[in-house]
Write a protein that binds this DNA or RNA. Sequence first.
DNA 1: TATTGATTTTTGTGATCACATTTCCAAAAT
DNA 2: ATTTTGGAAATGTGATCACAAAAATCAATA
Lengths: 231, 231
Amino acid sequence: MGALILEPLARPDGMTTHEYAHRRLRQAIMVGSIRPGESLTIRGIAEAMESSPTPVREALRRLSSEGALKVLDNRRIMVPKMTAERFGELIALRAVLEKHAARRAVAHITERQIDRLVEIDKAQDEAIARKDNAAALLLNQEFHRTLYTANPDQIIMPMVESVWLQLGPFLGIAMEHVAQLYFVDRHQEAIAALRKRDADAVAEAINADICEGIGGFERAAIENLLRLARQ
Amino acid sequence: MGALILEPLARPDGMTTHEYAHRRLRQAIMVGSIRPGESLTIRGIAEAMESSPTPVREALRRLSSEGALKVLDNRRIMVPKMTAERFGELIALRAVLEKHAARRAVAHITERQIDRLVEIDKAQDEAIARKDNAAALLLNQEFHRTLYTANPDQIIMPMVESVWLQLGPFLGIAMEHVAQLYFVDRHQEAIAALRKRDADAVAEAINADICEGIGGFERAAIENLLRLARQ
DNA sequence: TATTGATTTTTGTGATCACATTTCCAAAAT
DNA sequence: ATTTTGGAAATGTGATCACAAAAATCAATA
């Protein structure tokens, strides 16, 4: 019975227990700190965060609806295994979703919001410079989220986050073996296109950002990583 | 306290209570039988299906993660309100998602599976002929699902179903005021393109099927429907 | 008559318990 | 040495209860 390691996380008051559990588990999965195939037990998690099975179960149900966890026939719950095929599907889907989200945001985004994007991008560059992978990852997500949610009627964000979640375990594997993540930054290009209100150019910048970033892993490299992880 | 009306639904044995609750509620929302703005109570639903709060709460959490329900600040749960803007986003997203899903299925689908699509399409035509809206709707979904899941590594289906779920309440409104739904069927076109393994043509057929079907509502017609529903 | 304020009821939340199933581990049999 | 089998421990599931917050009800006041 391996004890589950969970980073403590600030709990704003008013936040319910199941919400807190959801957030903590989600973050752990997103940054790849739970290994695929590792099976999670309700009581184990409940104990790890000093609560009871009921709210933990709710958190796990949500995460499985979000694609972050898989419920087996035995009713055991685990992080889905990553394969080269699944990875390919995730990247292709991510590109399609985010191109669309970006395009749909262009008409709504304000100059003020674009300024905010510039700030976030700068902070990310600093994080990369000081080799702080975790911070850079979070800032990269914040950049994309800020852009897409500029559209007030947007409904795609939960799906984008679902893909991020499903890519999390791969990031964990990659970080174990690569030590330093390679970040691609086409954000400047996206920002310039946003200022010109050129939707096609924005979409293309986002596409490049994704495909040359995490999506740029060669298939051979992926299979190699996954083989290493299996041992 | 308005009693919740839920169609009874067969419960395969081995199915857990929360799963059953999830399915029943999901179906009710999908065919639009729960009015937007109507607030759901955990105890009310538990009573309606003769169980207890715990599994119902789990079902509601899943549905809110799937975008079918919204949790308010009061922690009340309701079906999201539909607006013309949101409807537009849903249709645009549906088109993008399903074009992509269709394109990604082409390489994997077998002749046998294409034959199955022909059968489903025929059954749908029969349902339309006998003016059985509910059956036609379900068969239409089965057609699309069968196509997209031909890709064994596909991860997009939950997202497609999420969009269907979010469109459900609109269907309910439309059916209250239009009596007879107008079905567009570009399935034959998709089937022909599949036989030729022409991915672009398949994607285009699916796109047309969506945009000329439920997506074909004029904006004025939508706003009219929504205005009627508000009273 | 409309509005405020107190009380009663309803509701969401989470801990706990009992039950059935599954998993695990060690001893016995092949 | 490997497989089988028995029981013990662990696990998922769902009903119930207690508590706090929210909503609804109703009486008193302006």
